[in-house]
């Protein structure tokens, strides 16, 4: 089962952090169709957050067709994010790994790489990151 965590310094609202963690787990294959999400009460007790935050995140995932509640039982994964899962992109992962190795050989450390990666993503998807954060 997925274990949620919250980062206070990310600037991303708690509800969106939960949504992103589920999407990411689905893409990475750590969650699959049929798996159960933790109950609202479990998440609330573990993270000491507002139950409404968890409900809002689960409703958003439901709206995206990724999960569905089964009354009295819990919330279950029913679909995968559009654009398949990342495991289907093994060749891309290998290329990225090669690129990271080359960058390291060129003297870039992990911080520099992450900054470069994030900046390039913003260049390619100018609207995506901000519109998502605003929602």
């Amino acid at each position: 089962m997925i274990e949620f965590h919250l980062s206070a310094r990310s600037g991303v609202s708690p509800y969106l952090q939960l949504v992103q963690q589920v999407r990411q787990a689905l893409r990475l294959g750590r969650l699959d169709v049929g798996d159960q999400l933790p109950t609202v009460k479990d998440v609330v007790a573990r993270l000491a957050i507002n139950p409404n935050t968890v409900l809002k995140a689960y409703r958003e995932l439901e709206r995206e067709g990724l999960v569905a509640p089964r009354p009295g039982v819990g919330t279950f994964v029913t679909g995968l994010p559009a654009g398949e899962t990342l495991t289907a992109h093994e060749p891309l992962r290998r290329e990225l790994r090669d690129w990271i190795e080359r960058s390291r050989a060129a003297g870039l450390d992990a911080d520099a790489l992450e900054a470069l990666f994030a900046a390039t993503i913003r260049e390619v998807f100018p609207a995506a990151s901000t519109s998502e954060a605003r929602r």
Partner: peptide
Amino acid sequence: RRTFLSSLMEFVAD
């Protein structure tokens, strides 16, 4: 603090 808030959130959920 964390334990208290987590208890409080459980009560709210219940």
